[in-house]
Design a protein around this nucleic acid. Sequence first.
DNA 1: AGCGAAAATTGAACCGATACAAGGATGGTG
DNA 2: CACCATCCTTGTATCGGTTCAATTTTCGCT
Lengths: 350, 350
Amino acid sequence: MKRAIKLSDVAKAAGVSQGTASNAFNRPEIVRPEVRERIEAAARELGYAGPDPKGRLLRAGKVNAIGVVTTSPLGYFFEDPYARAIMTSISEACDVHGAGISLVSAANEEKLAWNIQSAIVDGFILFCIEGGARLVELTRERRLPFIALQLEGLDETISAIGIDEFSSARTAGRHIMALGHRDVAILALELTEGHIGPVSETEVDAALYSTTRNRIRGYQAAMVEFGVDAATAPIFETDHTSASVEAALAELFGSDRPPTALLCMSDRVGLIALDWLRARKISVPGDVSVIGFDGVPDGEISNPPLTTVAQPIAAMGRQAADMILGGMNEPHREQLPVDLIVRASTAAPG
Amino acid sequence: MKRAIKLSDVAKAAGVSQGTASNAFNRPEIVRPEVRERIEAAARELGYAGPDPKGRLLRAGKVNAIGVVTTSPLGYFFEDPYARAIMTSISEACDVHGAGISLVSAANEEKLAWNIQSAIVDGFILFCIEGGARLVELTRERRLPFIALQLEGLDETISAIGIDEFSSARTAGRHIMALGHRDVAILALELTEGHIGPVSETEVDAALYSTTRNRIRGYQAAMVEFGVDAATAPIFETDHTSASVEAALAELFGSDRPPTALLCMSDRVGLIALDWLRARKISVPGDVSVIGFDGVPDGEISNPPLTTVAQPIAAMGRQAADMILGGMNEPHREQLPVDLIVRASTAAPG
DNA sequence: AGCGAAAATTGAACCGATACAAGGATGGTG
DNA sequence: CACCATCCTTGTATCGGTTCAATTTTCGCT
């Protein structure tokens, strides 16, 4: 393909200066109608598509788009219910500002670093599902404003919006314990990259991902408050896939003393559990109570609707987007309150 | 904020030419280690974040990102199950190419035109839910490769991937008719912008959106094949919101002769119908059969699982993305086959 | 030490636009 | 008719890089 037409070609063809040609496209009212028409005619003639944003961008500096970054594959944004809920609220804020969204992710870390370095955006929102620290590191090098959607385990100089993981989990745990459950199991997220299955106390201590650890500690704190030995509650790591959750459930419900309550560290895991139990005619909440974490919309319409600790998802996404688009100055950290939503998946043990 | 550091500043500080400084960042192996270190030191000293992609972009020409455009608000990408399924497959193709995704949309048409004009991408995938023609018009002006996810109603010179709407709908209709249903109702998508509720034959003829019309004609053709007067089947326009679907259902099931089968023009509508019917203890498929359209993943796990005409969603997204990223030459049009998936939401009338 | 090949560096052109100060045309006024 | 105020237009600098031909340095070898 031969060289594309550019503004200066059009200007030359129309016999005007490049500056005037530029104005004809961007501020048509300040160029004399007759001249403007000549320029438009020339543009049409040459097949000029209008000023190329690549050029404008360089001059203008501002992109008017925000990058949302995750370490997972791109599909995560459209498949994971929590991610979707956050993205929806980010979207709304962007719609208001008339800004765009660029999705940034990558298969491997090297690619990710490059993608972050080369994303054409005004700032980043970091989806720190796990491994947040590394993501922050990578993004910091870019020296653009960014904000992490996770508060804990990140140093104080970093803007972040999140929740108090420990006490949120404790809230969930208290709800279950207050109902009278004494045999509970914890379905956790990853503590260490790529690891799934049952985990010991020692492994929790050694956890790479502080979010998961803090939530476990929160659950356990609630047990202790109710006089239960936290060590008796089995913990299973899952990675958000059905397979990992189902393996954990198979083990739990294959034992001679299955739990009467499941503390799930995400609604996604909770929903998978609900499906698994229903398929096996294990009644929820009759035989076993299930509580999730996150407060995604899908939990409202599940069968039965899922009790959960709802994060202020809408507020988190909106605030994060507003901060980036509004041009942050200082690092800003915010801890938002969660909300226990009791639905039909929890009840006193039968 | 004072002027940002740029490559030439670093070069000057390190006492090398700008070209060498550039190489130090992009092809470190070709600059002498000792010089490279000096440059890196200078960069560190000055707080240089590495070459700004905005600059590189202009020179390189290629963005390595694809824009996905819709006329709906941005949230559509994360909420609508069909959109999500397509986005997931586009995502996979992008992951393979290491490309990014930019979401383009806008509240009003003027904004949309601007966003399309100024999107920094190598090409577009157009989500023509409805009003596809207008979207194509806007995008064509940009003179970048683009491909529409809808075949019909678009002129032959435009690249597109889609299905045969008429015969796909006829397939759905035949399934229902073959089961023995004679009282059916059609839950259509929009025929005309912003219009919902019951529609007459005349209105179908006058429809702005050809996709909806062709599918209606397909349903009706199936009825005729089975000796049913197509005019007896009521048609309701919906706009994908629960409210519009529920209003239609209320009217249908409030009448003295409710339908025994619902031909839904999207799975989303079908799933909403399923919820509504379940809430009212109307048995599916005992009292009424429901068939959807699209083949989204949610239909597999609904209660009951939804019979549907599945579009080859994965193939559509992948092919579209590959075409854009692979550098299309000629316009390319492809009609993909659909697949009737019979699940538990359809049966012979009771 | 001298020579030629290979490796490293330079400098300027270029990517495609926008901004802005300065210059020219137009028109109204005394 | 001179003069000043408006309104357009022009030319050039700039945004922040990459590229490439030309030049200089380095290095191995006789």
